[in-house]
Design a protein around this nucleic acid. Structure first.
Length: 779
DNA sequence: CCTCCCAAGGTTTTT
DNA sequence: CCTTGGGAGG
């Protein structure tokens, strides 16, 4: 019995069709990952293809890792030599080798969204662009669109002749590109565009990669954009062994430039393409699948296909309309709690929503009930201030031309270097066409720098020291030295205890991540480099942090949920205006994208699906009254269960037209059978208000905790405990410090927030530190 | 040069 | 509602 016997006939056909272009139209849950992994296995094991001649492009790093693992499980060898990666990381790998051919330095840095914004601000300032009229965000998004279409600044300029507003954007695009280049930096879109430019202009490089990637597979093909399409086409144009897998019904990234035409016209683009449809769903019950089919059927212009399953009907889909979003969250949390008590695992549950902002209410409820949970997305770990600060040190060490990074840290922690000084240095650097950091080397050339020069000097010599160290020690050790020499932790103290504590834990987490990176490199037998770590960091997706082995409820946006599955799924906020978003109800095309998103959401569910919505919801501080999502009404009634009896749905439908319940607390439909009445508490009662205040407080405390939702923690309670503990050592005692070793306590000053302790260490001499940070151990 | 306070604006979705 | 940025005062 071979590994291919477990596949169905269609799947097997897809696996065995290895030569020439192949389009696999794979419906949700139809086993496309199985097909891809088996296909890789088949190529290697049966056809003797070298693993390094295979390229598989996935949507996230997480998917890439999983794919590798599954290939290894199938054939037990060689998967590490297969290139499995995302578009972006593949491009970085190529560019690191060859970008010098385009006039960049190979140690370029990657700018994230925040960096882009900072840069664009400078650009607008320089060009006197009124950001009230053209804000940075919209300029950047225009540039991003251009880059996704591979439109260069000069082409852009030509295209917008006669349009005053867009001419401004063209100017900004020019300047922005120039600054990126002089900072030796690339933004996300550049990674793709520059790679294509490289392949288009360097025939030998193109040929090298064409030879290298004889078999190319692209997952989630429906979400590729023009530049990605171009990239794949270039690579595949020699051997034509291009296999793309996708589902036009799951195309949800139009806003990011994804072009659904890439999949719809695959057959005409690649004339000898074979098309295989996978329509048998192995994931969901028939009821769930039928609901999904019913919804997506309302879209026009899709490839015709209908998912089917041989599983039973399963449970009905539950639908609940609540008075407020608060009640909705409460219901979901209680439902999870109850099912968990009945023996379900937390990791069986996912709460999906349209916008990240909706996560808060759920978080409050989960915290209050001590239900372990994990929020995917929202504020990225690497976007946190303390993390960006420390990374900016690494970036500066790695690439001195990155002015943004240098300017970020030159006065962090505070060194008394002010804005005026920074601007003077910048002006001098710009005038002399050198980098900011370079300008710091010739301070006597800068007029008016005066007293600041000694401070600048010591900053430079510190950075030079770090650069030297970077050659000698590991990244972990370098990071440790940076934190110590800059006294970064101590400087956080100024912000208040809880805040600082959370930040310090984040920093510890960063150090863990560095260690993990080094370990991964060691395992792979590659050197751990600063650039390598920084690019890993730049290219992580929120979803990459999801760990299926951990037992927590997962909360995330519908977008993040793509590709995942859960036994129990809650689709929250099923309200017109929220989902579909009010911004997309005007145009049919946009509405269809929202509908696809809904389809993605429904098809995440394996066993049971719960839809919920609220009549009233606070959005940006004001109450919004929404009726039930039109998508809900596209689901046949007989598939739905709405609390008490079938007639209930109609009532819900009626109610939605006159649903300004205001504070009068008409009761929600929040109960499904068994424990009816549990949610009928009026929303206006003092009890509920107090509860709400308590949750809010708990949530606030919680946010002072580290970046992650820290799944197994029990809410905010234990947070306040650590204050005012006092010290267990006195002047004259011998103590031990993690880093500095043993020493004698010389002085303890009782500051208003913390004790400031002076210690004479045996090896490193006298140091002052805050007790809470130093974690000194009495000997 | 730094810190504190108030006003304004922002939320779709993300590599 | 919550965050960010600008301006005034120390």
């Amino acid at each position: 019995m071979s590994i291919y016997d477990t596949l169905n006939e269609r799947q097997r056909e897809a696996v065995f069709h290895t030569e020439g272009p192949l389009l696999i139209l794979a419906g949700a849950g139809s086993g496309k990952t199985r097909v891809l992994t088996h296909r890789i296995a088949y190529l290697m094991e049966e056809l003797g293809v070298n693993p390094w001649n295979i390229l598989a492009i996935t949507f996230t790093n997480k998917a890439a890792g999983e794919m590798r693992e599954r290939v290894d499980n199938l054939i037990g060898f060689g998967s590490e030599s297969v290139w499995v990666s995302t578009f972006h990381s593949m491009c970085v790998r190529i560019l690191r080798r060859h970008i010098d051919l385009l006039g960049y330095d190979n140690s370029f840095t990657i700018y994230d969204t925040e960096d882009q914004k900072t840069l664009m601000k400078d650009v607008c300032k320089k060009l006197n662009i009124d950001t009230k009229k053209y804000n940075e965000r919209s300029i950047l998004s225009a540039i991003s669109t251009a880059k996704n279409e591979m439109v260069t600044p000069s082409e852009f300029e030509i295209n917008v002749m006669g349009d005053f507003g867009r001419q401004k954007i063209a100017k900004a695009y020019w300047e922005y590109e120039g600054q990126l280049k002089s900072n030796n930096a690339l933004d996300f879109d550049d990674l793709l565009m520059k790679t294509v430019q490289l392949l288009q202009t360097q025939p030998d490089v193109l040929d090298y990669y064409q030879e290298r990637f004889r078999y190319i597979m692209v997952d989630e093909y429906q979400d590729t954009n023009t530049v990605q399409f171009k990239l794949v086409s270039l690579l595949a144009s020699k051997y034509h062994n291009l296999c793309v897998v996708g589902d036009d019904d799951q195309s949800i990234y139009k806003f990011r430039g994804a072009d659904i035409k890439n999949i719809l016209s695959f057959e005409s683009t690649f004339s000898d393409a074979k098309v295989i449809k996978l329509e048998q769903n192995y994931r969901s019950t028939a009821n769930i699948l039928n609901a999904a089919n019913a919804v997506i059927r309302n879209n026009r212009g899709r490839k015709d296909k209908t998912l089917w399953t041989d599983q039973g009907e399963g449970d009905l889909i539950r639908l609940g309309q609540f008075d407020t979003a608060y009640d909705e969250a409460e219901f979901v949390a209680e439902d999870v709690e109850r099912l968990a008590q009945d023996g379900a695992s937390y990791k069986d549950f996912a709460v999906l929503y349209r916008t990240n902002a909706q996560s808060r209410l759920f978080e409050e409820q989960f915290v209050a009930r001590s239900i372990p949970y994990k929020i995917v997305g929202g504020v990225n770990f690497y976007a946190r201030r303390e993390i960006k600060d420390l990374l900016a040190y690494l970036k500066t060490i790695d690439n001195g031309e990155d002015d943004l990074a240098v300017r970020r840290i030159i006065n962090v922690p505070k060194r008394g270097i002010g804005l005026t000084t920074i601007e003077r240095v910048q002006a001098s650097a710009t005038a002399r066409e050198i980098s900011f950091y370079e300008a710091l080397g010739g301070l006597d050339l800068i007029p008016g720098i005066g007293r600041a020069s000694s401070k600048l000097d010591s900053f430079v010599s510190m950075m030079e020291y770090f650069k030297g160290r970077a050659e000698q020690v590991s990244i972990s050790d370098l990071m440790k030295e940076i934190i110590e020499m800059t006294t970064y932790l101590e400087s956080l103290e100024a912000e208040g205890e809880e805040e600082a504590k959370a930040r310090i834990e984040n920093i510890e987490e960063l150090q863990n991540k560095i260690a993990a990176y080094e370990e991964a490199c060691a395992d792979a037998g590659e050197p751990a480099t600063l650039s390598g770590f920084l690019e890993d960091v730049a290219l992580v997706a929120d979803i990459d942090s999801l760990d299926e082995s951990q037992d927590y409820v997962v909360l995330m946006t519908l977008h993040s949920a793509k590709g995942l599955e859960f036994p129990q799924v809650y689709l929250a906020g099923m309200e017109d205006g929220l989902f579909p978003s009010y911004r997309s109800t005007e145009e049919e095309e946009e509405l269809e994208e929202e509908r696809r998103l809904c389809y993605v959401g429904i098809t995440r569910a394996m066993k049971r699906l719960t839809l919920s919505c609220a009549r009233r919801r606070m959005v940006r501080g004001e109450a919004q009254f929404n009726r039930m999502s039109r998508f809900v009404q596209e689901i046949p009634q007989e598939l739905l269960e709405t609390g008490r009896g079938a007639g209930r749905w109609q009532r819900a439908q009626k109610e939605q037209w006159s649903s300004d319940t205001g504070g009068s607390a008409g009761q929600g439909m929040g109960s499904f059978g068994q424990d009816g009445g549990a949610y009928e508490q009026g929303t206006g009662s003092a009890y509920v208000r107090n509860q709400r205040a308590a949750y809010r407080q708990a949530q606030k405390d919680f946010h002072k905790k580290p970046f992650q939702s820290a799944p197994l923690q029990k809410g905010g309670q234990q947070l306040a405990a650590s204050k005012e503990k006092g010290l267990d050592y006195i002047v004259g005692d011998r103590v031990r410090h993690v880093k500095f070793g043993e020493g004698t306590v010389k002085e303890i000053v009782n500051g208003n927030r913390d004790y400031e302790v002076t210690i004479e260490f045996d090896t490193v001499g006298v140091r002052k530190m805050f007790a809470a940070f130093a974690k000194l151990q009495k000997l």
